[in-house]
Amino acid sequence: MPWSRFDREWTEPGEGRILEFKDAVREAIDQAMQLDERVFCLGLDADDRYAVYGTMKDLTHPERVMGTPISENACTGVALGLALSGMRPIHIHMRADFLPVAMDQICNYIAKWRDMFDDQCKVPLVIRAVIGRGWGCGAQHSQTLHGLFARLPGLKVVTPATPHDAKGLLLSAIRDDSPVLVLEHRWLFKNEGPVPEEIYFVPLGEGRRMREGRDLTIVANSLAAVHAMKACESEGIDADLIDPRCVKPLDLPLILGSVEKTGRLLVVDYDSPFGGFAAEILAQVAEAGPGILRAPARRLTFPDRSMPASGPLERRFYPDVQRIAEAAHRLCGDPVAAGGVG
């Protein structure tokens, strides 16, 4: 389905004002810009009429939003320079697939800058990029890449799943004095949930238990967390669902505590498998908690290939609610209904 017709998939229950994910992002940026005049946004198409899927719409300070040419590598260097000169830049990308164009600046400069000079300077830089499958967009416009970027020492990687976390994590990222990459899944933008009106901060590195359960621990972030939640609700899975919220820094204690309780671990990671986020969690759990697993840990990820364009292949490439449910049942030794999406 093209974006224009893609609708809300989930509403987070809770009290208070309800906002869409994209409006929560917008509010974080708007409030940060009002609070601190050093906050400055730049990015390709950041200032055009589509306003980055609405996340940059009607800001109080449009004069601090700068559109850029198709020069991602140079502009990422400019963003680092802005941060080093005392500003608090937010560099915005319509798609995370454009970040590899700027890999030199991200990998060789930004991630390493504080460490190379033994922390004598701050790098208060946020890179915001939209991730996720499009609609027949193929290999170059459907990537997630959070596992790749988390490999870089010095870079924090944040992946909100709910409107509440989208706002609170982005505000923390903007306040942070180190570079933070915030990856927002395009499929979450119309989801709703309670979002406080005032400024608040979700600490980077603090995960969240989305629901309590006994049979297994599911760790999932970003869109996968929402799908895991839906799988538990609709398929009667009694899982402890942990959304780490940050790929890095990773809230290992929260995950370990849960696995100690359930003895089973499924990581759902909408990214490629090799050496990725799921692999890292499995490795850390194996290291820190030998013997706490009653069954082999399992991960559900993309296949280790590029995203295909054709509809049937593309739909198969992304795990979904059904396949999460199946993986959870299998891990618990439950019979898996025949005829399910295998």
């Binding site: 027949g136 967009c137 193929g138 295909p308 364009a309 054709s310 509809g311 292949l313």
Partner: peptide, 19 residues
């Protein structure tokens, strides 16, 4: 056929319009 996402397309359904 590639626009239609079929195996007979020029990129065997993996590319789409842009590839």
């Amino acid at each position: 056929a590639e626009l239609y996402g079929r195996t007979t397309g020029c990129s065997h359904a993996r590319g789409g319009s842009m590839h």
